[in-house]
Simulated assay, not measured.
Amino acid sequence: MFEDLKPHLIELRKRLFISVLALIICVIGCFGFWEFILAFISAPLKVALPEGSDIIFKE
């Protein structure tokens, strides 16, 4: 029974390794652009805030 399952487990391990590696690469890449990403995400909030108010977190 285990011999039938073995190729599937090998394929699963391969795909999980590639997925985790891609996630790590993306996270490391995002560290270089964190200011741009933060500005992009907070832009709609800055527009919606009343005049004279500001976000507590500063860039």
Rank of each mutant, 00 (worst) to 15 (best):
F33L: 01
L5N: 07
E51G: 01
L21M: 03
F40V: 14
F31N: 06
C30T: 04
F17M: 03
V20F: 02
S42L: 10
R15P: 01
K46T: 15
V47W: 15
P44Q: 11
H8E: 07
F36E: 14
G52N: 07
E11L: 12
W34R: 05
E35C: 07
G52H: 01
E11A: 02
P50M: 09
I10H: 05
D54A: 13
F33Y: 15
I18S: 04
V20K: 03
W34S: 09
L38V: 06
I25S: 12
L5G: 09
P44N: 03
C26E: 13
A48P: 00
P7A: 04
E51A: 04
G32Y: 12
F2D: 09
F36K: 14
S19V: 07
F33G: 01
C26H: 06
I25M: 07
I55Y: 13
I41M: 12
I24M: 03
R15I: 01
C26M: 10
F40Q: 05
F36R: 14
P50L: 11
K46D: 14
L5K: 12
P44V: 10
H8Q: 06
K58H: 14
V47T: 15
L12C: 07
A48G: 07
L12D: 02
V20Q: 05
L23I: 04
K58C: 05
F57C: 12
F40I: 12
A43Q: 00
E35A: 02
A22W: 00
S53W: 15
F31L: 08
I41G: 00
I18P: 00
R15N: 02
E3T: 13
E11Y: 02
K14Y: 14
P7S: 04
C30D: 02
I37L: 13
I24F: 04
E59R: 15
L16M: 10
I41N: 08
R15K: 06
K14Q: 13
